[in-house]
């Protein structure tokens, strides 16, 4: 949309952006925002200021890494050890970004747009994008994704700060229930978004392998789970599969 951008294509982009914004009024977005209620409470228990809590959400935008960072700050862990621990928890964003960018890309899209979009890639955005983007026209995907994720990240930051300030009044059982929404939502929505058997296998293997790797090598448990579980799932899929169907063709009609 560079040289041949016309009024109508810009209007369309704005419309897709607005539709993405409306995507925040959805089950996945609400569940994520609820889990930030739990995070705001965690920040307060950990002795952070409300500004530090809000900055953590706004600048990392990856809940597992945020939990690691706040835990390190509360325990007084040093700079380098904290950076490595947060970095390890963020390695998962690499394959997620590598797999999402080709779906997001439109012919001739400016490179800065992809870097901008990548800032917001996290589990919820990835799950929603992998579910919804393939059925949208190519030129609609970036504006839709931007509208959805910018709104989601802003809301997450506000929820973090608000729940930090209200956290003192929340009973433990309710906080636990809010935090529990995240894993059960991840499990069911990832299964629902899985189109290939390899994705479902990877999901099951990952859940089963993590305890093993956490026992063998706690610092690298997530990395090993991803690399071993994902590769095994791919190989099983490849070695036992009938000839692969066309994989998520962009123009396919929804099943």
């Amino acid at each position: 949309m560079t040289d041949q951008a016309t009024d109508s294509s810009e209007t369309t982009a704005v419309n897709w952006f607005l539709r993405g914004m409306r995507g925040v009024l959805s089950v996945p977005a609400f569940i994520l925002l609820f889990s930030f209620v739990g995070f705001g409470a965690l920040c307060r228990e950990s002795g952070l200021t409300v500004w530090a809590a809000a900055l953590t959400t706004a600048s990392l935008w990856a809940l597992p890494g945020q939990v690691v960072l706040v835990g390190s700050m509360a325990a007084g862990v040093g700079f380098l050890a904290t950076a490595i621990a947060v970095g390890l928890s963020a390695v998962r964003l690499l394959p997620m970004t590598v797999s999402l960018i080709p779906v997001l890309r439109a012919p001739g899209i400016a490179r800065w747009k992809l870097f901008f979009a990548s800032y917001f890639i996290a589990v919820t955005a990835w799950v929603v994008a992998m579910q919804r983007l393939p059925s949208l026209p190519r030129e609609a995907r970036f504006p839709f994704f931007a509208g959805f994720t910018v709104t989601l990240a802003s809301s997450g930051t506000i929820v973090t700060a608000a729940s930090f300030m209200l956290a003192a009044n929340l009973p433990t059982l309710l906080s636990a229930g809010l935090v529990f929404l995240t894993p059960i939502y991840f499990l069911t929505s990832l299964f629902a978004a899985a189109r290939l058997r390899s994705d479902r296998l990877a999901l099951g293997l990952g859940v089963l392998l993590w305890p093993l790797f956490d026992w063998l090598a706690p610092s690298y448990a997530l990395l090993l789970t991803g690399a071993v579980g994902g590769t095994a799932a791919y190989l099983v899929h490849r070695l036992t599969a009938e000839p692969a169907p066309a994989i998520e063709p962009a123009e396919a009609t929804e099943p």
Binding site: P64, V123, W126, L190, G206, V207, A221, G229, G230, Y234
Partner: peptide, 25 residues
Amino acid sequence: IWVRAVATALVAGVIAQLVLDPSGA
């Protein structure tokens, strides 16, 4: 397909961690 399987297994690991070794409440 392989990269996506790796990403999916990683997130599955996060799920297991949140349930088996949670923090906070």
